[in-house]
Amino acid sequence: MLVIPCPHCGPRCEIEFSYGGQAHITRPEDPAAIDDETWADYVFMRDNTKGVFLERWVHAHGCRQWFNVARHTVTYEILASYETGAKPPKLDFETQV
């Protein structure tokens, strides 16, 4: 069971949250101007990191706000949580397995 620190509500059990996948993906500014390859990359291609991963969560059964989490995908250790729009904290990304 993950205990996820919501930046607004504090640590809560994982069943209160829904997952939003990889964080910090920017929608192309002018979708009409890009080719299918770039659009497919934006819509479908995702990092699937084995190690420290920056991801989005929403506190669906709480404050209902989206935020970002840095989590290790092998140990499931949560290293940080921070508000959407903020830059990720400095982390030791070399803690890969």
Binding site: M1, L2, E14, I15, S18, Y19, G21, N48, T49, K50, F53, E55, R71, T73, V74, T75, Y76, V97
Partner: peptide, 13 residues
């Protein structure tokens, strides 16, 4: 599980 994981165990919920 709904979230990415490489640990070969599932979540309790």
């Amino acid at each position: 599980d709904s979230y990415i994981g490489y640990g070969q165990r599932g979540s309790l919920p």
